[in-house]
Design a protein around this nucleic acid. Structure first.
Lengths: 336, 336
DNA sequence: ATATACAGGTTAAACGTTTCGCGATGAGAG
DNA sequence: CTCTCATCGCGAAACGTTTAACCTGTATAT
């Protein structure tokens, strides 16, 4: 059906080797160049990437594997990854693993079987053998958002510890002493880091921890909704609540609306990610904003470096700073 | 490096043809089956999809091409597309064309060069020759969200006309007579359809049209923000405003917040898409909700049908109904 | 006993490239 | 006029599969 290099050869009277040479930028006489270009145009010839990949073992394609396509935090990162890679001639294959480790394994397998040259992924965590396997096949991998133990590869993350530290500190310097945190699921890297920041700032300001103020959610809307309710129904509820990801922040605000809680009079709130949402709610929400563009670009550049052969030994860790946007959702408490 | 079918053959003492037969589900003696399975496991053999695709001309992969990955409307559709395709053994390659026709052409080319078996795409519109070219290569294409003229392929869309009709009708039956519409860019399919609904319901209720109430935005946050301001600063502003996509709805709400406009007392509002956002703002926003799951599933199934050879002639159009969610953002006007 | 059918296996060609090594041509140097 | 060398083109093998055609041996029907 489609024209092949052979057809071009026949059409020009040259050999396929010469055509191939031309395609790949080799030296060809000007008059032959013309001929070939003409033939390619009239035959509408396109290199068969399958055949080429089979020969060269390179596909100029990188795989991107994320937890969910319906999460704007991840899709924004992808967008900036693509932006960078495109400039270097790389294309991307994006996969969604629905926050499911088994699907993650399958999709990683898929990417490997598609012979991608490299992979950028948000690991679910919990298991790393499938990732190690891919690394063993000499496919460079860059992890984003979450770090994993027992594995040697580049990683690009937000400085989650200080993100949480800064957020909670904002409460503290405004006089809050009982600060609730809606954390992520236990054992997840980002959960642990954000909690570490929460604990550390309490230590630094010599404020005792109250275990009841620390609640583990599931990084989804439902748990944000539920836990906000639970916190507010405590006998001694917090005066400020820090929600540690976007979905749970959505849920928390829905709960606030449904229960007619007045922000920031009845409780102060700091959320996570998505500046647009922060501007849409009333009063405008204070949030921790992760550097999505930066994460994406950094990850892409790190991968490009590996792909160009500069596999200079030890994998590196990039911890990008977050930004704290304080709006009207945090109240200053006069007397303690 | 990686094990090939040849290695498995050598390891088992069988011929590569037999191994291939086994892989593809042919008849093989039980004892040989065992041997092969063992060999595959110990050698960690995986089929080289590049080589297989080269031979078979099928990759069991479908391409998905959308306007933007940062648009949750599209990513939700993709998610349900994937859900269906995965069950039939198909994988997806997702591409983002940043609402740019040139990038769309390049990405479509990329998908074709990856030899995808089929394509699901949101066309930007304006040009169709690249799409026709892909169709000529016998790659079935399903269009979603937007229909195109002069092209013969299956299409899955929302019933935009009646979506707009229903939304505006809600205003009318509550006594509104001056209803503004923040439409999309001119010439875009969805813009025209939604405007058609707006016009039609005015006709049916015998309400004269005021051209000043019809404003063309750009389907982005900025234009939603700007146009809401413009409409409210008219000498004779509308009592209700219908915003015709998600991004512009976000912008409109930001404007409402910044200008301290009271909803629905000073103006009533109906937005578009994203039920979560609707629950997050106060008062809860009335919205037109598109059937994202339905669109995705339908598109996937239509494509699967084509892929299985049932190319039963004429392409079909699927117009899926939207849903109208009325909340407190629409006021009932007592006296006209 | 012979013909038939069929299961299970093999050989070899093909898919569309890239690439190595070699040959031809022609120009400049000696 | 010959030698050297660069330039350009070609033949052929290889990448890892699938698959048509063919072979062998055993079980079944006649």
């Amino acid at each position: 059906m489609a024209a092949t290099i052979k057809d071009v050869a026949k059409h020009t009277g040259l050999s396929i080797a010469t055509i191939s040479k031309y395609i790949n930028g080799g030296n060809v006489l000007d008059k032959n160049k013309k001929k070939i270009e003409d033939a390619i145009k009239t035959l509408d010839f396109r290199v068969n990437e399958l055949a080429r990949g089979l020969k060269t073992n390179r596909t100029m394609t990188v795989g991107v594997l994320i937890l969910s396509l319906e999460n704007i935090f991840f899709t924004s990162i992808i967008s900036s990854v693509e932006n960078v890679l495109l400039q270097y001639g790389y294309s991307t294959i994006i996969c969604d693993c629905r926050s499911d480790l088994e699907i993650e394994k399958a999709k990683l397998d898929f990417l490997v079987s598609k012979k991608v040259d490299g992979i950028i992924m948000v690991p679910h965590g919990g298991d790393v053998v499938h990732i190690k396997k891919a690394l063993d096949k000499n496919i460079p991998i860059v992890l984003i958002d979450r770090m994993l133990k027992n594995i040697e590869c580049d990683v690009v993350i937000s400085d989650n510890i200080n993100a949480a530290y800064d957020a909670v500190e904002q409460f503290i310097i405004r006089g809050h002493r009982r600060i609730g945190i809606i954390a992520g699921p236990k054992k997840i890297y980002t959960t642990e880091e954000r909690l570490k920041g929460y604990v550390r700032v309490h230590e630094d300001y010599a404020i005792g921890l109250d275990g009841n103020l620390i609640r583990y959610g599931n990084y989804d809307v439902e748990s944000g909704y539920r836990i906000l309710g639970e916190l507010m129904e405590m006998d001694n509820p917090p005066t400020g609540i820090f929600v540690t990801n976007y979905e749970m922040t959505l849920g928390a605000i829905m709960a606030v609306n449904d229960k007619n809680i007045i922000i920031p009079d009845e409780v102060s709130l700091i959320g996570f990610d998505n500046i647009q949402m922060a501007r849409v709610v009333k009063p405008p929400l204070s949030i921790v904003e992760q550097p999505v563009k930066g994460i994406g670009e950094t990850a892409a550049n790190v991968l490009l470096k590996r792909l160009s052969g500069e596999n200079g030994g030890i994998p590196s860790i990039y911890r990008l700073k977050t930004e704290m946007l304080i709006k009207d959702s945090v109240k200053t408490i006069i007397n303690q």
